[in-house]
Design a protein around this nucleic acid. Structure first.
Lengths: 209, 209
DNA sequence: GTCTATACAATGATAGAC
DNA sequence: GTCTATCATTGTATAGAC
């Protein structure tokens, strides 16, 4: 059950690395429950006891995979905060970093999100909540700074936070369901700008409100 | 393999209805692959051959479930279009109808989306694409009308469409991952208003662009 | 660390009586 | 239409040799 300590998401060609690479690809393509240990070890070119030796169980390799993802997320999120500029610029930069990280590890993210948003598929418990919570917390702080400085219009900071999260959710979803449409970082930036700016025509602004 | 023709999502207490109710709840809670036929029939208070008699297979009951969902979606989407008002009002109404439908069938949606956005979990093929496509197509048409009438500012209609989809994606995700937070229809309406209006303060509008 | 061989429970599905 | 009993297969996991 002991997990390895090396960075397995950036899979080297060691035996545990190859096992992890295979597991990620298979979990992403078929789901956790539908993937068999036999398939994982065959794709890695080893036999079953090798997986049990290195990861202890099917659950073990899953948890190792998620643990590594969590560490990378924390590092990137923290790094993206140490920049300067307007609230709008900092929000753009934060989303861009997070989305780039996601695109780098699309398969891991697919597994992670399938379980976070959907049925657990028999996968062991993993506290995805800390990731989601931290993401929203960072975003909320950036929004609040923008409201306090007068850069953003007054309004419920929570509502503004959820609203600006929208474009990220859209490109995230499309990256999974329609990777061929290439909803990349530029698309995300464009959609964010639309939300910053609003949809209404200028002359409508005073009319409605 | 023959599917029943009655509305199974609004489960009556017939035997096929009870089987469908159980299957929906279990697929939603554990995932398609992780749910066993034995669990379904036990929850429905019948034995295994009964499921095979009515639905032919585990795949059969899944496909019946999705077929029913597709029919309900089509009916609601078409109904939501026959209303008048400004583009903004019609968009709000369209989203509200779709979200209400989703909340009514949270479990079915959880299964559907887990497979649409994530790994298929060994579930049989179902063309979810027609649902997604029709959703976007309707939204795009409403946006284009608003741009042409001058109600919305000029801009790439596709970008505006994806941007206004954001709030829906946010409340959808939160309904699944945090049902206790009650991201309901009112929240959706508020977030949509934020996007219509934009985040920037009024005096910033001309400065940036 | 990796192998062959296998234990053993659970799975989807069916035969045949009623 | 629903049951009991059972099948063949596949699942995770392990023992023991090298």
């Amino acid at each position: 059950m002991e997990a390895t300590r090396t960075a397995l998401v950036h899979h080297d060609d060691s035996v545990p690395g190859r096992l992890m690479t295979s597991a990620i690809a298979l979990f992403a393509r078929k789901g956790y429950a539908a993937t068999t240990v036999r398939e994982i070890v065959e794709a890695a070119g080893v036999t079953k006891p090798v997986l049990y030796y290195h990861f202890g169980s099917k659950e073990g390799i899953f948890l190792a995979m998620m643990g590594e993802a969590l560490r990378e997320f924390e590092a990137t999120a923290t790094g993206a905060l140490g920049t300067r500029g307007s609230a709008e610029e900092r929000i753009l930069r934060f989303f861009d970093s997070m989305f780039a990280l996601m695109l780098e590890h699309l398969d891991v993210m697919r597994v992670l999100e399938a379980i976070y948003y959907g049925p657990p598929q028999g996968a062991p418990f993993f506290d995805f909540e800390v990731i989601h919570k931290r993401f929203i917390e960072i975003l909320g702080r950036l929004i609040r700074e923008g409201v306090e400085s007068g850069e953003f219009r007054p309004g419920d900071p929570d509502d503004l936070t959820w609203a600006i999260l929208g474009p990220f959710e859209v490109v995230r979803g499309m990256s999974f369901s329609h990777p061929e449409m290439d909803f990349g970082r530029d698309t995300l930036a464009r959609l964010l700008k639309v939300v910053f700016e609003g949809l209404r025509a200028a002359h409508e602004k005073e009319l409605v409100q």
